[in-house]
């Protein structure tokens, strides 16, 4: 599972991060990801990733509000996002530290 979500720009990881502060429907996820990360998720990409995450049990669909269905993070999704974020944080710290050494 970790390998599936390990790439930084992987839509699944972006969606998990977007849902970390509460449930969102499809458009809210794309808007949030675009605003916070600068990545524009296309509708096909978004729903392919939503389906994958739902099948993995990392997110779950909530009852629809009109035609918009919110999704929220599950406990397993929160655990996965935490693990991935720590891994990326370690990598970022390492990279910035070494770059700083090189530039100094």
């Amino acid at each position: 599972m970790a390998d599936d979500l390990g790439r930084w720009a992987e839509p699944g990881l972006l969606i998990l991060a977007s849902l970390a502060d509460g449930e969102k429907h499809g458009y809210a996820i794309t808007a949030d990801v675009a605003e916070q990360v600068g990545v524009r998720l296309g509708p096909g990409t978004l729903y392919a990733a939503l389906g994958r995450l739902e099948a993995l049990g990392l997110i779950e669909g909530r009852p629809a509000e009109g035609r918009r269905r919110p999704y929220r993070l599950t406990a397993a999704g929160a655990t996965e996002l935490t693990a991935q974020s720590r891994r990326m944080h370690r990598l970022a710290t390492l990279s910035l530290g070494r770059l700083g050494t090189v530039q100094a």
């Binding site: 499809g26 509708p43 978004l46 729903y47 009109g66 035609r67 269905r69």
Partner: peptide, 13 residues
């Protein structure tokens, strides 16, 4: 399963 919500997303976008 997803038709309605996806239609709405395409309209929103």
């Amino acid at each position: 399963v997803h038709g309605d919500e996806y239609s709405q997303l395409l309209c929103d976008l």
